[in-house]
Amino acid sequence: MRWLHSVLFWSFFAASSAVLFCVALVIFLVTWPFDRNGRVLHLFSCAWAQLYFWVTPGWRLRIEGRERLPWHGPAVLVSNHQSLGDILVLFGLYRPFKWVSKASNFELPFLGWNMYLNRYVGLVRGDKDSIAKMMAECERWLNRGVPVLLFPEGTRSPDNQLLPFKEGAFRLAHNQGCPLIPIVLTGTGNTLPKHGLLLKFRADCKVRVLEPVDPRAFPDATTLRDHVRGLMEQEKARLESGATAP
C-alpha cells in the first residue's frame, strides 16, 4: 500500500503545485509595490507547504517556542536536517525568513520558480564563489531586517544524528551581531526518504525553537558554533525521549 499512497501523494503534489504557483505569481505581482521583502508571499508559501501535511492523515506536527521567532528584525535561524520533510515542517513556523537552499532546487518546476519569486538564497555546495555570494546576500537580508534560515550541517543526516556544523551561519550572526536562534526537529526522517519516493504512512514530527543566543557573548564564530551545536544536541535528545522543554 505504500506505493499507492506515494503515487496519490506525488500526483496531488504535482497538480497542486502547478495551481498554487499561479496563485503565488499573482500574490507576487499584487504585493510587490508595498511588500518589497516578500513577507506576504512567504506566508502563502508556508500554507502551501503545510497543505501536504494536512492531506497526509498519518503525519503529525507539533511546534513549540514559535513565539521566540521575530516578526521584525534580523536573526539567523539554524536547524538540524533529517529529510526533505524538514522543509514542509519548518514552513509551519509561519514566520518571515529567507531560506538558504541548494541552487539546483531553484530549477524545479513550480516550487523552484516560487523560490525565485520569494528571493530565497541559492548555494552551490563546495563552490567558494557561491558561498561568498550567499554570505553577502544573507547579510543584505539581515541589514533589511529579514531573518535567514540555514542548515549548518550542510546536508541531510543519513541516520538522524547531528553531523558536524559548518561555520557560515555562525559567522553571519557573529559579524552582524544579531540573535542566533537554534531550531531542533525530530521525526521528519519518517516522512520523505533521503533516496527514493516511497513515503511512510506515519510520522510524529516535533519542532522546538530554543531561546535566542547572543553572539556577542562569544569571542568568535567557532566558539559560538560549538556552543549552539551542544545546545541542539541536548535538546534533540530531550525531544526524542519525550521530555518537555526546560
Rank of each mutant, 00 (worst) to 15 (best):
R202F: 14
F9P: 08
L198E: 11
P164E: 04
K236E: 07
M135C: 08
I63H: 13
N175T: 15
C178E: 12
D220Y: 04
E153G: 01
I27Y: 08
R156C: 01
L69W: 07
F110I: 08
H81R: 04
P215S: 12
R156P: 00
C46K: 02
S241I: 03
Y120M: 06
A14D: 02
W10V: 04
N118G: 03
E137N: 12
R95K: 15
F91K: 05
A217N: 10
F110P: 12
C138M: 09
V213I: 11
A15W: 04
F151Q: 00
L224P: 03
P147C: 00
L149T: 01
F97T: 03
I181R: 00
H174R: 15
Y120K: 00
F34M: 06
D35A: 10
R171C: 10
R229F: 11
G122L: 07
W54S: 05
F9K: 14
V213K: 04
R144L: 12
F110Y: 09
A221P: 00
P70S: 05
F34I: 14
R119F: 01
P179I: 13
P158F: 01
V121L: 02
V146Y: 05
P193C: 12
P158Q: 03
G73Q: 02
R62N: 13
S130D: 03
G112T: 07
R238P: 05
S83H: 07
H5R: 12
L192C: 13
T155V: 14
P219Q: 11
F97Q: 02
Q234A: 15
D35V: 15
Y52I: 05
C46V: 05
E240Q: 15
L192Y: 04
L29K: 08
A245W: 03
Q176P: 03
Y94Q: 07
P246V: 02
P57L: 08
P158R: 03
F21N: 11
N190I: 00
F13S: 05
N105L: 15
F44P: 01
W71T: 04
L172H: 14
V89N: 05
A217M: 14
P212D: 13
G168L: 10
N118W: 03
K166N: 11
E235W: 00
N175Y: 06
V40D: 02
F21K: 09
R39Y: 13
L142A: 13
